[in-house]
């Protein structure tokens, strides 16, 4: 019944009509391509896969002051020295005592820190010194160095979306990998250790 009213055109030039019908199909074709794209992207919106513009780039060269009053077995725990990234594979964990998932991942970093091939350091994000120190006292301090980022500026440099986040910096000082969200029992072996080994192999 739709066809019955279709014969509306009274312009008789078949050439022109043909050209126009191709033009008319264009929007649909464009949309079809778009729909296919969406279909592929579906489910790729996992926040853990947020892009980091910094992967493969040098780790930001910012030195951060230590947590006031934080001591370890070898005396005061130093702040973050950007120069120390070169030559080691370094795990950089951005954490805060007020961040709930950070409490869950803290014991896992203690496990990770047992691996003597790597250095584990922390960036304490927007935290009070007392809270940060006692947070580390509560779970044990896995970090050989902790830098304080009170203003959040360093986190911006590192391209942090939110705490917790963990970076692997290779011996060349380039950021090799970034984990958005907490380290968990699930991803510590399947993702973190795999990426660490890869960074170690890279020399």
């Amino acid at each position: 019944m739709l066809v019955s009213v279709c014969a509306m055109s009274d312009t008789a030039d078949p050439q022109a009509t043909k050209r126009r019908s191709w033009l008319a199909i264009a929007p649909f074709a464009a949309f079809a391509a778009l729909a296919i794209l969406f279909l592929f992207r579906l489910g790729a919106g996992d926040p853990g896969k947020l892009p980091s513009a910094l992967i493969g780039r040098p780790a930001p060269l910012i030195s951060l002051p230590p947590i006031e009053g934080l001591t370890g077995p070898k005396g005061a725990v130093p702040g973050l020295d950007a120069a120390a990234f070169k030559g080691n594979v370094t795990i950089v964990n951005v954490f805060a005592s007020w961040c709930v998932p950070c409490h869950d991942e803290a014991p896992l970093f203690t496990q990770l820190a047992r691996d003597s091939r790597i250095r584990v350091v922390g960036i304490n994000y927007k935290d009070a010194a007392d809270n940060a120190r006692r947070f580390l006292g509560r779970y044990g301090n896995p970090y050989s160095a902790v830098g304080v980022d009170a203003s959040g500026r360093a986190a911006i440099e590192w391209g942090v979306y939110g705490v917790p986040e963990t970076f692997i910096v290779g011996r060349d000082g380039l950021i090799a990998f970034k984990l958005v969200g907490p380290l968990t029992e699930d991803n510590i072996d399947s993702i973190m250790r795999v990426e660490i080994d890869r960074a170690l192999k890279k020399g």
């Binding site: 005592s97 007020w98 409490h103 007392d130 947070f135 509560r138």
Partner: peptide, 11 residues
Amino acid sequence: TADGVVTADAK
């Protein structure tokens, strides 16, 4: 609420 950490507020 701080999961066992004696925070500055608590202190």
